[in-house]
């Protein structure tokens, strides 16, 4: 299966797929599409990537965060230390990576966390209504439109949750299965 052409094609296609899936997600409220379909489209990109490159590679490419850090100096205040860490990680990554004192750490984004986030977003989108005395999942909409994406509101947030969850689930399933 693993041919160079396919592999390259997929590498190029994946960003397209993801952009398209996000588009489908937001467009779904007015046209065919929505969280599910968007999520499925998005995840199918990853699935093909996994099938061609193997799960490890997919994880390395898309689901790893590089974090950099160095030990705190004895007399350094905690907040200052945190701020510097932030700066290291956000602005000066490349350069700092080669710094001898810096140790870097890879954080793997477990798909379980994506699932949990999706579930959390979906569940919490309904909490706003509940906390303001309305029934659960009472919808709140903004007054403005965002071009292409449409009108933001809690149901859209819900759909985003669905989207994330679907991606997480499909990723999890494919990873586990292709490790077999």
């Amino acid at each position: 299966m693993k041919t160079i052409i396919l592999a390259t094609a997929i590498r190029i296609l994946i960003p397209l797929f993801i952009i398209f899936s996000v588009y489908t997600l937001f467009r779904g409220h007015n046209h065919p599409g929505g969280g599910f379909i968007g999520g499925l489209i998005g995840s199918i990109a990853f699935v093909f990537h996994t099938m061609t490159h193997g799960p490890q590679h997919t994880v390395d490419t898309f689901l790893k965060l590089n974090l950099y850090g160095y030990p705190r100096q004895p007399n350094q205040s905690r907040s200052l230390y945190l701020m510097r860490m932030m700066r290291v990680n956000v602005w000066r990554r490349r350069k700092m990576a080669r710094h001898p004192e810096i140790r870097h750490r890879m954080i793997r984004i477990e798909s379980v966390y994506i699932i949990a986030t999706g579930l959390f977003l979906a569940a919490t989108s309904g909490m706003l209504g509940l906390l303001s005395g309305q029934p659960y999942m009472h919808a709140y909409w903004t007054d403005f439109y965002i071009p292409v994406l449409g009108k933001p509101g809690t149901p859209i947030l819900f759909d985003v949750g669905v989207y994330l969850l679907v991606i997480g689930v499909v990723l999890k399933i494919t990873f586990v299965m292709s490790e077999e």
Binding site: G28, H29, N30, H31, G34, A139, W141, P155, D159
Partner: peptide, 9 residues
Amino acid sequence: GQGRNIVNV
């Protein structure tokens, strides 16, 4: 429901 796609709404 602020949406034209009834199924999605």
